[in-house]
Design a protein around this nucleic acid. Structure first.
Lengths: 240, 240
DNA sequence: TGGATATTAGAGTATATACTCTAGGGCCAG
DNA sequence: CTGGCCCTAGAGTATATACTCTAATATCCA
């Protein structure tokens, strides 16, 4: 592995572990037992390192969201969610300070905006494929409210899934008291249930059971961490 | 207004406008035409200022989410969403660096975790009230998939609404190219549609129309900003 | 081999910024 | 008055940190 690659990789690891704000370029250099000058020979700024990490992240997620050349199964949907959560986890520092990075680098802001757009398009296509496979349906059903067109519905659904998935970790951080104080990929994956819940009303009866069965393999939010005490122990104590 | 109050208020304004990272305590002091020493006489650290802003924010949102002593109307639901978005907007700098603030201040982390828990409880109660009013229903419907209990459904729904609402702004920042480059409360409010969309499948037929009518008053995401070109111009070109 | 090019070292710097310290002014109770 | 106390000024500091500069060393190719 070249020095340049080592710098990138180790930066990512340290940023994820300790937070980018706390890791100086000198830290990274020291950790790799190279000199600051050396680091700056390969990357002209800390910003440049972060930018390159972003491009890796985007490439990874683009890759994950590719559509196969066949109909989609329920398992496929789980694989999508699973791998996207993996990606988010591997680059988790990015989402902790996203606003700041976009604010500091106009080029990044533009490209990241395009990336978001691409992801939403893909998500919408995936949803359409699942509809085509008979797993989801957006046809108005008897007794159900249907004031929105199916197309709008799918676009909105895609966006909401994206919002939940990409912000699941920040929610965990702000609500959970994890044992040991550190989040793990296991906690992260509990977000799959949240994402599924959004589409649940659109799952056809024929596939409902399979979805539920596959979902059971993933850790549940309330089981995985302490949470707020009320979140865990509460049992349908709703006021009515 | 006392000097202490002026410091807090102006800090909030500057943090929101320019970003907390870019506003030093010296900036705040200079802006108020007071000395740094004076500022530190009232607040022993920048952290302390931020902490106090947090408590104001939490008090405000707690206030917004109070349950009235009567049945809830559709209008009430819109009022909830509307005012929470107002709150998020007024304290928007908090959500830009949330992770960092919680990381830097354990006391804040604990209290914010409790705050999140409270909000989710309130949201769940509101949802239950709306169900009681006949606006929402979680009864299994013919032809619909129903593998989850109504109680779990409501809790999950509350959390998803919370996720979408609290992260709507960060999505806007990362996707929209706003005219003039600055986000406004108007952009923010377009998130109401997103939040509503999550509960849409549970709206009873009797109230669907009223919900749609009231929603029409709020700006739509695609109309309010340029967005990614594809987001705007695309017209149901889904692949099937 | 020898010269050019790529890489590395590491001390050093410029700047930002949160915060301190001392001194003094205004105000009010006694 | 006057002594004490809340408030304010403002110069100053300690520290962090992104980045530079020069010189030395490795590597590669003719």
């Amino acid at each position: 592995m070249t020095t340049k690659e080592r710098i990138l990789l180790r930066s990512l690891e340290l940023f994820n572990e300790k937070g980018e704000r706390h890791i100086t370029t000198n830290h990274v250099a020291a950790d790799l037992s190279i000199s600051p000058g050396n680091l700056y020979y390969h990357y002209r700024s800390k910003q440049a390192i972060i930018y390159e990490i972003f491009t890796h992240y985007e490439r990874l997620v683009d890759h994950y969201l590719q559509l196969p050349d066949r109909a989609l199964s329920v398992q496929d949907e789980f694989d999508y969610l699973d791998s996207v959560f993996d990606g988010l986890w591997s680059y988790r520092f990015l989402h902790r300070d996203l606003y700041h990075y976009l604010d500091a680098d106009p080029r990044l802001k533009t490209e990241y905006g395009q990336f978001t757009g691409r992801c939403l398009d893909r998500l919408e296509e995936i949803i359409s494929c699942l509809e085509h496979s008979g797993i989801l349906t957006f046809d108005p059903r008897p007794g159900a409210a249907h004031t929105t067109s199916a197309a709008t519905l799918k676009r909105t659904l895609a966006l909401n899934v994206w919002l939940v998935v990409t912000n699941w970790m920040s929610f965990l951080v702000s609500s959970i008291e994890v044992e040991g104080g550190t989040l793990s990929i296991r906690h992260m994956k509990s977000g799959i249930h949240q994402a599924l819940a959004i589409q649940e009303p659109y799952v056809t009866e024929a596939y409902a059971e399979e979805v539920a069965r596959l979902a059971a393999d993933y850790p549940n939010y309330s089981s995985v961490g302490a949470g707020t005490s009320k979140m865990v122990s509460r049992k349908a104590q709703a006021s009515f």
